[in-house]
Write a protein that binds this DNA or RNA. Structure first.
Lengths: 350, 350
DNA sequence: TTGAAAGCGCTAACAT
DNA sequence: ATGTTAGCGCTTTCAA
């Protein structure tokens, strides 16, 4: 009969057991695994063999505790279902996979409270780095970020005072450009459709408003927003609401592409001719925009690149590099397609 | 002048410092934070106050090491950009957020090697539980899962020998039902469009094949597949390829909804009347299907529910409950819409 | 309800 | 190239 253990819990193989099987000290096994060159060829192979045979799995907690560091990069984004963030995540993962870092994803669900909570959880893990979406953290969250002892990249936007580093673009300017495009194509009763109304959407609305004010075309009646999450079907609904409120609307800038696709479908159902009677411009340029009928105009944003770059900056910085500049503006690109080709190029008739 | 520390590294506040500030022992502070009822009211408040004032953040690694457990649920899925998994993740997060568990996401990118690697990383963290997509792990990955000392849920499919627990549905049967539907609606030259061709897609193809064999309508020429990831624009391409190969095709069962939307767009461009000349059925029933013109038929799958249920089973099991049954079939639902309404109900003419 | 002592499994620092 | 020693910060166990 076995003696009762002082501490219970299923035993798993430890470094010490590997070490005694290999007849070396624990630290040598540790080195052989973490930094194979630091150990002689013969030993390295012998140890690896024993590790495989015994099915040794290192204990990440013990390692983190002893070394006071981890290979975890925390990522805080407001949505896991939104295509925009899915693309950013793809960039982040792409860059992470080539490195020794692991990504830990936190979903704030557009809640500042949840963001604070997750930040606390993440920081308790001594992450190697942090990527957070946006610049609108709560005061307390911002304080936590400023105190954090790891590098941090804010993504999605550009703004004045980065907590540390930043990669994004100006939503205001991008929306301004899209709205100007509609004006230049001869549309006169240009509407805005916005869902969710998170800070980035708000800034796009401001860009829209500024462009139409300058063109002396702004009509508040043409701004339709909802706090609901954007979907294609919501685009249909908002389009219906817009037409009920303002039947003379002749174009729309949608806060994102899902809405734009919904608007197109609704226009088709109502036999409204796009782009001749009605122009549509989306935001983000998801791949569906290029193949819809008619193809939909949008503002292309560099989402995957944003994720990649953020991760790259983090890894470089963790590696000790000096990062300059700390604020990167990835810009945007207006992609004009059939859905706004009413009056291409020519100035609008009065 | 301070004496040099034996171990360097930025100091952060520890439990002991809180304890001495509160003039109690470390274990009391630990208890006050983890299990407030176990400490007197007065002490609890005093300790909480000090914790807040000093900005104490517990060290997750130390806690994990000492207690040999974590609150991490590892989730392994093959894609972070695929809408299907995004919905599953939403379910997982929804259930996790109501609990004390955190989700750690791993992206296998449809690679068995990557899955093995991630499994190793995850297991080194002593996760409280694991959710893995599919039943087609490599032999070595399956061995790792069987040895793991935490509960595990396989999702997305149902199959004979669960590693532990399982929540999913039969892709074979779902595809069979969709194909039968097209047969019943009077289509005779029914094609299959498949992208990615992962194991679940393969099983859908088998369901398709079986249905058409039984109807004596199978023609291999009508099966168009590609290893590329599915997108709307790929749907357009595959549709073009299908029509080049088999101009007499009169319906298509698409491996997923993105392809189906692409097929619709391509049909519109070619002035092919849907559903009269050509029927379209997708898979998953993303929300866009219901609002497209015409509305697209699809097979609804319960993705968010799958995520929720998997997480729920895990949490219950970690909490010591006995879970029965260990295999849950969530089924599917054929949602017939305009895109297959050629000959509703009536048996096919010969 | 509170405390003292003893590790958890690993790695940093300092040898050799 | 390899070993010795001493913790990392917390929680378990046992005791009061």
């Amino acid at each position: 009969m076995k003696k009762a253990k002082k501490r219970l819990g299923k035993k798993r193989i430890t470094l010490v057991e590997i070490a005694s099987a290999a007849e070396v000290s624990a630290i040598t096994v540790s080195r052989a695994l973490r930094n194979p060159q630091s150990v002689s060829q013969e030993l390295r192979q012998r140890i690896q063999q024993i590790v495989d045979d015994m099915g040794y799995v290192p204990d990440a907690a013990a390692s983190a505790l002893a070394s006071a560091r981890t290979n975890v990069i925390g990522v805080l984004i407001p949505s896991v279902t939104n295509n925009v963030f899915a693309d950013v995540m793809r960039g982040i993962y792409a860059e992470a996979e080539a490195s020794a870092f692991r990504v830990q994803l936190g979903n704030t669900r557009y809640s500042l409270i949840e963001e604070e909570r997750l930040l606390r959880v993440f920081l308790s893990q001594r992450p190697a780095g942090l990527i957070v979406a946006g610049v609108d953290q709560s005061e307390s969250a911002r304080a936590q970020l400023l105190q954090a002892e790891c590098p941090i990249v804010q993504i999605m936007e550009v703004g004045h005072d980065p907590v540390d580093m930043m990669v994004g673009f100006s939503h205001h300017r991008a929306a301004f450009a899209a709205t100007r495009h509609l004006v230049e194509r001869g549309y006169r009763r240009i509407a805005f459709l916005g869902a969710r109304m998170d800070p980035r959407t708000q800034r796009r609305l401001q860009g829209f408003v500024q462009a139409l004010e300058e063109a002396e075309m702004l009509d508040e009646k043409l701004i339709v927003t909802t706090p609901r999450a954007s979907t294609v079907s919501l685009g249909c609904e908002l389009m219906s609401e817009l037409l009920a409120r303002a039947p003379d609307a002749d174009a729309v800038f949608c806060n994102n592409d899902d809405l734009a696709v919904g608007v197109l479908f609704e226009a088709q159902r109502r036999r409204i001719a796009v782009p001749h009677q009605f122009g549509i411009c989306g935001f983000n340029d998801l791949e569906i925009m290029a193949v819809a009928n008619p193809a939909l105009t949008s503002v292309r944003t560099h989402r995957e690149e944003m994720g990649r770059k953020a991760m790259r900056m983090l890894i470089d910085r963790i590696g000790g590099k000096h990062i300059e500049p700390r604020l990167i503006d990835l810009g945007y690109e207006l992609v004009a397609r059939e859905s706004t080709a009413r009056n291409a190029g020519a100035p609008a008739p009065v």
